[in-house]
């Protein structure tokens, strides 16, 4: 390539990249810098100044870090359940049904996302509440005598989170599983492997990049979710995002809220990093 051609292509490269960089700068970097700035300022209007107290508060006040630990723990559980449910679903879509049907199944998975999350959560509430649809049928069928409250507990909340996250797990899994050669599965079977062993030694190692990217997305989505824990978790489930909201909106303490927001970003990044380390993977491999 000639020198001028090189220059031109570099110019084109920057021209194409510029909107992306601009977008990142305006919508991601700048707000976070502002948040970082705010999180390091004193909350009191009368005594403005630099301070670390907002971060200190997180570690010194058990309610804050316990809420974070709880949120992260439940997000991990949600991710694990989503993975366990997503693997066979993805395998079924990618390998078992014929291609036409697998498209239809993907659309079915996508369908819940045509309505907003709020509507979806209210849908669950209509189903699960004491005077809800499921209780109605259980009563009618004589399976139970008194209606059961199925809402407002952690199990229901996790179910809601799993439901919301399913698609984000299944899509990357289907795409990696589609690239799995059927004969590998048959070969393992032929060499004496049981079903479980085939999953462990062939399908899961092959699907590793999809599993990792699915897990990262689901973990981050669950950790950052607000509506589902708030509405379905009911009275026991203080989610960390809710605490951030409370700091900003209820307590007017934007500085504290910013510190929490930053901590959420930092701690979740650490958790993802640790997860990658544990499974000996690199982020670049996952993304490719």
């Amino acid at each position: 390539m000639s020198a001028s051609g090189m220059k031109q292509s570099r110019l084109a490269f920057w021209l194409f990249l510029a909107p992306v960089l601009g977008w990142l700068l305006l919508l991601i970097v700048l707000p976070h810098l502002d948040m970082l700035y705010m999180s390091l300022r004193s909350g009191s209007f009368s005594h403005p100044g630099w301070t670390l107290t907002n971060y200190q508060a997180f570690f010194e006040e058990p309610i804050y870090w316990l809420t974070f630990a709880r949120t992260a723990g439940y997000a991990v559980i949600t991710t694990a359940i989503t993975l366990v449910l997503g693997l066979p679903v993805a395998f079924y879509i990618a390998k078992v049904v014929r291609p036409g049907l697998s498209g239809a199944l993907m659309v079915l998975l996508l369908l819940p996302f045509w309505v907003s999350e709020l509507v979806r959560v209210y849908g669950w509430m209509i189903l699960l509440r004491e005077s809800g649809v499921i209780n109605f049928f259980l009563l009618r069928l004589g399976i139970i005598d008194t209606p059961i409250e199925m809402l407002y507990n952690d199990a229901t909340m996790i179910m809601g989170l799993v439901y919301t996250s399913m698609l984000f797990m299944v899509v990357p899994l289907v795409s990696v599983m589609e690239s799995l050669d059927d004969s590998l599965v048959e070969a393992a079977y032929d060499l004496g492997a049981s079903r479980l062993c085939i999953w462990r030694t062939i399908i899961i190692p092959h699907s590793k990049p999809g599993i990792t990217s699915g897990c990262i997305v689901v973990f981050m989505l669950s950790l950052g979710n607000y509506l589902t824990p708030n509405l379905m978790g009911g009275k026991n489930s203080l989610w960390f995002t809710e605490q951030i909201y409370n700091q900003f909106i209820a307590s007017f303490n934007w500085n504290q809220g910013s510190a929490f927001g930053f901590l959420l970003l930092a701690l979740s990044s650490v958790i993802v990093w640790a997860g990658l380390k544990l499974t000996r993977q690199k982020l670049g491999e996952v993304a490719s």
Binding site: D181, S183, E186, A187, A188, Y189, D190, I202, P205
Partner: peptide, 20 residues
């Protein structure tokens, strides 16, 4: 008798070696 219990083994057309 399931494939994983048969005293036969198959060399596949495209070999099906495990790349992992």
């Amino acid at each position: 008798v399931l494939p994983n219990e048969r005293p036969v083994n198959l060399v596949f057309q495209h070999l099906a070696l495990f790349p992992m």
